[in-house]
Nucleic acid binder design. Structure first.
Lengths: 207, 207
DNA sequence: CCCTTAATGGTCCTGTAGTTCCGTTAGTGC
DNA sequence: GCACTAACGGAACTACAGGACCATTAAGGG
């Protein structure tokens, strides 16, 4: 038999999955990745713990599935007409997500899980690859409008917007206010205009 | 009695601490934060597990102490004479650390631990605050030389160099090659020159 | 609507992480 | 170098996460 739930995914199976993922999200947000255990998740979801162990097996496996589920809900990108406006919308969205108690804790837990499990890490990388690709058109349109130099690596510009926010969130712990988000967008725009993200270019000094 | 080891920190106590921290680092690098358990650390360190539980108590407590220990070994900053040169040296150092199998796994594990434990998080923030402060003079000298506008937030510039590297390392999973490090330095320099990191300035559009 | 069997969920079992207790070792002050 | 006791470490104990087994429930195809 293959993965449980793959042959009869409808009805009860789907309800159980939803309840378990919801409970896992609650538990992660409340207690963090280090204290997550499947027995507790089963209790919260009002589901037999046997089911949780059979379907997901390990903590990281459950987190990976939770992430897959989250990846399916995608948010539309902004269209403000200017590069910095679009990037600022993106930065504010990311900041809002990370600063939100539940969502932020959830992302933290997932990233923590990814550091010790390859499958979770792959799911995480796919998640961000997708999110980044969704915002790439903002940058490409800016290149077409002549706002940015030809050959600019659009994905790198998008990454540059999120990076300072995640750095604060995970490493330095500095506050994640809206000014920070706006500054991230401003800096990414400025660097892109200066040609810091031109593809295939060896990163030699600007001057 | 206060924290064990605080009254007679010499000789054996110090040896035990060193052995345990070393073993913890090995275990974290090999198996990751999720699979760390103190009994295993005690075995590796050839130390009674009672000792480990008494001194450190929990996994996150041990990780926090490991971090404190690491923070004490500080690296001197570069002095190349130009801002981008200095920042590039910093970026390459950070990249090298994160890309190194042992050191990288260790940082990942510590950051993971910090997401679910307040004390570890505080230790981590102190660690980065210190590292950032060490590189601040590079930026301040650049301001003095007239390379950067007056009022530039030096700490923010230093953070901007590390941020893209940590983002790739923890979130997106994109490769951490030297070109990425150089690009991070280049982008931070360009954004700083454009005035994106001027203090107390509301982040309004560049134009 | 019925039959097959995928999937769930009690219940019991086991390995081991984490604790407690107490005897042993060795750091520190005199 | 002696006495005092901080700190270590072995052994035995406990609680519970994780797993095995099987009876029960309800998808999904006909």
């Amino acid at each position: 038999m293959e993965e449980p739930g793959s042959i009869r995914p409808g009805g009860r199976t789907a309800r159980v999955r939803a309840a378990v993922l919801r409970a896992a999200g609650d538990a992660l947000a409340e207690r963090g990745f280090a204290h997550l255990d499947l027995t507790d998740v089963a209790r919260r979801a009002e589901v037999g713990k046997t089911t949780v162990y059979r379907r997901w097996g390990t903590v990281t496996g459950l987190v990976a599935d939770l992430l897959t589920d989250m990846a399916e809900q995608s948010l539309p990108r902004a269209r403000t007409g200017s590069l910095e406006g679009d990037l600022r919308a993106n930065a504010r969205l990311v900041r809002k997500t990370l600063a939100d108690p539940r969502q932020g804790a959830l992302f933290g837990a997932i990233i923590a899980a990814a550091t010790s499990d390859t499958r979770t890490a792959e799911a995480l990388h796919r998640f961000y690859a997708r999110r980044i690709r969704e915002w790439v058109p903002c940058v490409e349109e800016a290149i077409d409008r002549g706002e940015l130099p030809e050959g600019t690596d659009a994905e790198e510009v998008v990454r540059a917007v999120s990076a300072p926010l995640y750095y604060r969130f995970l490493a330095s712990g500095d506050p994640l206010d809206e000014a920070t988000a706006d500054r991230a967008a401003k800096a990414a725009t400025a660097a892109a205009r200066a040609g810091a993200y031109i593809k295939d270019e060896q990163a030699r000094p600007i001057l």
